[in-house]
Design a protein around this nucleic acid. Sequence first.
DNA 1: CCCGCTTGTGAATGTATAATCACAATAGAG
DNA 2: CTCTATTGTGATTATACATTCACAAGCGGG
Lengths: 186, 186
Amino acid sequence: MSLVANQGLRRLSVAALARRVGLVPSGIYRHFRSKEEILTAVLDRIQERLLANVQAAREEHDDPLDCLRDVLMRHVRFIREGRAIPRLIFSDDVHAGRPDRRQRVLAVLRRYTDELDALVRVGQRQGRIRKELDVQTVVMAFLGMVVPAGILWHLTEGGFDVTRHAQRAWKMFCAAVAEPQESITP
Amino acid sequence: MSLVANQGLRRLSVAALARRVGLVPSGIYRHFRSKEEILTAVLDRIQERLLANVQAAREEHDDPLDCLRDVLMRHVRFIREGRAIPRLIFSDDVHAGRPDRRQRVLAVLRRYTDELDALVRVGQRQGRIRKELDVQTVVMAFLGMVVPAGILWHLTEGGFDVTRHAQRAWKMFCAAVAEPQESITP
DNA sequence: CCCGCTTGTGAATGTATAATCACAATAGAG
DNA sequence: CTCTATTGTGATTATACATTCACAAGCGGG
């Protein structure tokens, strides 16, 4: 039952969540033991989604760069549906006291970057991505295309065109990391 | 008196702030009318600091690229002292309801990017930065070097080496945006 | 030396919200 | 059709926090 209307990703507060699923606040506790549990469930869903993005992109593209680009675009789409991943990632609940929460967030992030990491490595092995680049840095640069854009998108309440930005940023990204190809098909 | 110990940037809550400045919670209200006012004051200080960074970098470097690099490094230093800009930027208080708060955050961000924007333009005019690149995208890429890194730094409680990352990211950034120089000094 | 202003204190109030509980509705198995 | 387990409800409690207020301490100027 963790799938109750994650549509849009709830803002904090049990009452708000309850309203969104057409329930009275106390009803929530029939499905989750505590707010903590809700939070972890949401984090799980975020992780699922991110990994599913990578998976899907992998299935559709052989070329690692194409694949990365697809992941980027999927991530952008994800940002645009779910209102508030950042809200969740930073907000009170997450960092309020206990480190286990932060730990969990970090774990999700790491899980995602590990996938990206793998993609980049493949790209390097296939000569599509410059071998002299530090993999971690490339992955961070990838996040750099999406995170600030997401924040801006959400600060402007959708006014910032994340999609267009992603397209432009991708070109710059390629300029920085793609290995110049000498021959079209050797 | 807005300067009372912004050292490290307070976590949310009047009580916490009071404790940090050696006061009893109610004492805070001798200096600020409300929590709102505290928030705005902090935002003001963040903005000041960011602009001061740009200013200082500008005074020390003629070359726009060197200047940008300096801004990057200063921003990194800023991240490392102040514990929680992100915490502030996203957290509850900011987005809780009223849009004026979000508006204010956005304004601070814009003010900063405007400065960066200007730097990039100068760089383009002087032939140091590729003219065909969209200025906005370059600025966002700049933020991309610092924002996710800051987040990671703060998720790992300082475990992530932001400085080293910034140095590596800068190289990639240059590879993407710097105009290849034909002659050392024409 | 005393008066008034600024700065600090402790107790008290109000509100938002997480969490609990006793009870009602409902549904599916027997 | 009835019984029991699941799911929903309203009232209630507990807690954390912002904010207020009446009062005390210190300090400068007349």
